[in-house]
Nucleic acid binder design. Sequence first.
DNA 1: ACGAGCGCCTGTCGGC
DNA 2: TGCCGACAGGCGCTCG
Length: 275
Amino acid sequence: MPELPEVETICKNLRYGTPEFPSLVGSTVDNAQVFWARSLATPAVGDFLTRLPGQVVRGIKRRGKFIICNLSQDALLVHLRMSGDLRVEAQASPLAPHDRWMVDFTNGLRLVFNDARKFGRLWLVNDPQSIIGGLGPEPLDEAFTASLLHQRLHASRRQIKPLLMDQHFLAGMGNIYTDEALHRARLNPLMLSSQVSEEEASRLWAAIRWVLEEGIRRNGASIDWVYRGGGFQNIFCVYKRAGLACPVCGTAIQRMVVGQRGTYYCPVCQPNHRR
DNA sequence: ACGAGCGCCTGTCGGC
DNA sequence: TGCCGACAGGCGCTCG
């Protein structure tokens, strides 16, 4: 579910606070509770519960789709996967269905992880690199240039869509933003990465940056019952729009399956010339 | 070095 | 109304 812009939005709320709650930064952990043990990837629950109390939140950042909460000793890493969500609230608030774990702070704040599908994961580690070390470039970093993208595309011969969604190739793209970026760049999702020209790579680079930046500007996309408040879904060109008119040319958007994922594209704007 | 299939889970929606 | 399959923002595994 959440892709880079949704994760960034959640991160910002934790880091800077919201109208309702202040930033988590500076808070000291009082205690933690785990309601669904499999949400915790590492360490074992007992370790987790004893290591956390007393640690202070030093900072909160994002890498790809990971939320990294730097503590005085360790780092807390959260991956939301398909349906995960993090919220801050007062400790008097009632728990909600699907709450999987929570951390209470000595200042009365509570961080809660809600995850209907139970795919989300949490790690408490000394070295975050052990978890996120294999991630590809950060798409909004200055270091991620059009020529780097072109070069990396030519390093493999894969269908472009699954490659863009491979977190080792590029960190943060998911199903929605990939479909939107490919449409904006006028590239067919099945196109082989090694056949993307320099000009096409340049278009794709600009499209990736645009959809991610616009997604962040609009606080992500709200699709289901989670991630309320985002607005990116209002400007989808292709995603979940099968049968509707392409906003560029008016042709009916089509759906196909690529790499086991529902894939939306315009057959006219994104023709499949080469395979 | 690839892609396909599947497991992990719960909820929603459309068709019959 | 109720049941049943398809599908959903992700990712790691095995198997050709």
